[in-house]
Amino acid sequence: MTHPVLELRNVSKSFGPIDVLHDISLKVNAGEVLCLLGDNGAGKSTLIMTLAGVHKPTTGEIFMDGEGIRFDRPKDAADRGIATVHQFGGTFPLMSIGRSFFVGVEPVRKFGPLRIFDRKTANQTAVKAVQEFGITRIDDGDRLIGGLSGGERQALAIARAVHFGARVLILDEPTAALGVKQASHVLRIVLEAKKRGIAVIFITHQVTHAMAVGDHFAVLIRGALAANFMRGEKSREEITDLMAGGEALADLGAEIESRMGPHDGPPPQPAA
């Protein structure tokens, strides 16, 4: 029996008197997508930051490959292959694709005593890495990140993480700000990462997106694990009801769902 890549056992986190996470136990295996669902304020962000080494759990343990670990700073988690991709992907909008791909790990040529940033290699590697994820529209490493679409930025950030050996990929609401078509691109990339044997933790509050790619689902409500189930065990309506706090009113669920789905129209009008 192989160990899960990443496992949380009874993890709690408090900031002073406030309990943000309460007794969370979760595991994610290689080549598996774990969807972490929850409404705003449910503790998703704190959970991610705990996994990424930003916060330390107050109680409880984290295991990687069955071995107990402790992250003192974000770099420790990164060195173990835990990569986090945030909602907007690249954080350097005015840098070129090739340059930002290799930030901090620049490929270097020597010219006498001088160290030269190998722009050509950087651009080629970056473009190749992102094209392997099916984004063939990116073909020039000199383009600026800020000129890419939201989905392309996500793809680039994921390709970067995978290129540098990520084993656990934490995707923080990657589809939240995207249109339907862009979101489906990102979901395809999630599946591609899964196919390569990467353990993916997919954070979202869009049930449809979660159901499209998830193998395993966990619902967080007010810092506690409200449900933990495998693909096919619950229907979409049940999950939505769970996220809304278990108020199983069908019409309320439908209303929430309609508000949460991506749409192009104006925001809903408040009732007069």
């Binding site: 350097f92 840098m95 340059r99 901090g104």
Partner: peptide, 8 residues
């Protein structure tokens, strides 16, 4: 590259 990233 570091300078651009630092400013970004």
């Amino acid at each position: 590259n570091w300078i651009y990233a630092l400013g970004g």
